[in-house]
Amino acid sequence: MADRGSFDEFYAGAVSRLVGQLFPVTGDLHEAEEVVQEAFTRAAARWSRLRDYDVPEAWVRRVAMNLVTDRARTLRRHTKAMLKLRPPPEALPASVEALALAQALRTLPVRQRQVLVLHYLVDLPVEEVAHTLGMPNGTVKSLLSRGRHALAAKLGETEEVLDPS
């Protein structure tokens, strides 16, 4: 019972935040909800161990990110046609700038989207992004650089505007 209570509390505190973080990666709210829900299902199965983690949310985020990669790979390999049949992404009431960013993100490779979101939105340093995605630091830096460059080009802005730091 205590397990159930603590899992429910964890879920309630993290689920919306994680959906928000996964949305710019998936480009589709429904898909973001699905991967987050699946990640929480896996967390529920391991909750007796996960609850002792310092940040169980980081584990769920990492699983969700991996699921996005797997799904993207599967879709590419097996069901290109399905992509054409999928419903258009749901339009959300955000500013023109944010919606343009969402649109531009959808055109980037999923790995670039992931590093951009983890670094700029979740605010993880390069080393933790690398750990989360299971790739070397150099690859993360390279993906960040290419992602920023591609976004700036698609948005018609300079990289300095996107990342003043």
């Binding site: 928000g20 949305f23 973001a32 944010a98 960013l101």
Partner: peptide, 8 residues
């Protein structure tokens, strides 16, 4: 990105 995440 934060705005997108908040809306989602």
């Amino acid at each position: 990105l934060q705005e997108l995440a908040d809306v989602a």
